[in-house]
Every structure is written in structure tokens, then in C-alpha cells.
């Protein structure tokens, strides 16, 4: 089949134009919300309302915990600041898939948290992380990494 370069460029241009027009007609949302990614517990991305409902319920369930007398699950990011080799640059480490899933789930729930509690302050990320850790620790099948 003879390849018509001019026709191909026109087709690509039309496709880009249609996508741009569709995007303008779509309500503006943070980019990551549109992704169809796996949740930490394996389900597909829930709706905003479902995320809010589940978060609200988990925050209420965990609120009575006595921090000073209970084991509180959390996640810790592991940051290497040590340069190595002749380049004196910090080497790139392997990133387990769990990190990406956690970041994505955290993003969605942080957005939900702000809708639930519009006056949220910086330290409110703590209960949010604790909710996600509690779900992960209690679901019975820990992701590797």
C-alpha cells in the first residue's frame, strides 16, 4: 500500500483537534483523576463520592484510637541522599510498583480529604496516611515492596 504522507498528517491534525475540542467541553479536573489505575486493594478507581464515603467512614472508625497506647501503622518513604560513584550523584533506586499505587491512592484520598474538610491543615496528612496504612495492613494480602 502506498503511504500518503500528506493524508496522514491531515488525519493526525484532525485527531488532535477533535481531542482538544473534547477536552475543552469536559469539566476541568486534576489530570490524575482521569487515570484508570488499580487501587491499593486491587479494585478499580472508585468514584469521588465512593472515595469520600469510605474515607469518612475510616476516619471516624480510627478517630477513637489512643495514639500513645496502640500500634499505629504508617508508611515511610525511603530516601537515599548518599552520592555514589565518580559522578557523585545519588544513584537511582528500583521503584517497587507498590510505591506508584500508593502515590495514586494517596492523591485521590487527599483530594477527597480536602472536600470533606475544607479547612484541612498541613498536619492532617498524618491521619490520611494512617487510614491508608490501616487498610493495607488489615487487608490480609500485603503487596510486595
Amino acid at each position: 500500500m502506498h503511504f500518503n504522507r500528506r493524508q496522514a498528517l491531515i488525519s493526525i491534525g484532525l485527531a488532535v483537534f477533535r481531542k482538544a475540542a473534547w477536552s475543552l467541553a469536559t469539566p476541568l479536573r486534576p489530570i490524575a483523576w482521569g487515570r484508570n489505575h488499580a487501587d491499593l486493594d486491587g479494585s478499580q478507581t472508585p468514584t469521588d463520592t465512593a472515595t469520600e464515603d469510605r474515607l469518612r467512614a475510616d476516619l471516624a472508625r480510627l478517630a477513637p484510637r489512643v495514639y500513645s497506647e496502640e500500634g499505629i501503622p504508617v508508611f515511610l518513604a525511603c530516601v537515599n541522599l548518599v552520592p555514589a560513584g565518580p559522578s557523585h550523584q545519588v544513584p537511582k533506586v528500583n521503584l517497587p510498583p507498590f510505591s506508584a499505587a500508593l502515590a495514586s491512592t494517596f492523591h485521590r484520598n487527599a483530594q477527597a480529604y480536602q472536600r470533606i474538610r475544607p479547612g484541612a491543615v498541613a498536619k492532617d496528612v498524618a491521619p490520611l496516611i494512617e487510614v491508608l496504612a490501616d487498610r493495607d495492613f488489615s487487608r490480609g494480602q500485603a503487596a510486595k515492596g
Partner: peptide, 30 residues
């Protein structure tokens, strides 16, 4: 250090997205 929830959440999300994560359980008085 982040001063608002938005800044703090963005920092944590960035850390989780770019660094390996490990689990911890914190006890105090037992």
C-alpha cells in the same frame, strides 16, 4: 517544610511516587 495541607499532601505524594516505601508500626506506652 510544607505549611498547608495542599503543600504537605503534594510533598508526600511526590515522595511516595518517586521513592521506595516501607511499612512501620509505631508503639509508645504499652
Amino acid at each position: 517544610p510544607p505549611r498547608t495541607f495542599t503543600e504537605s499532601a503534594a510533598q508526600i505524594e511526590q515522595l511516595f511516587a518517586t521513592e521506595p516505601v516501607i511499612r512501620a508500626v509505631n508503639f509508645h506506652n504499652a
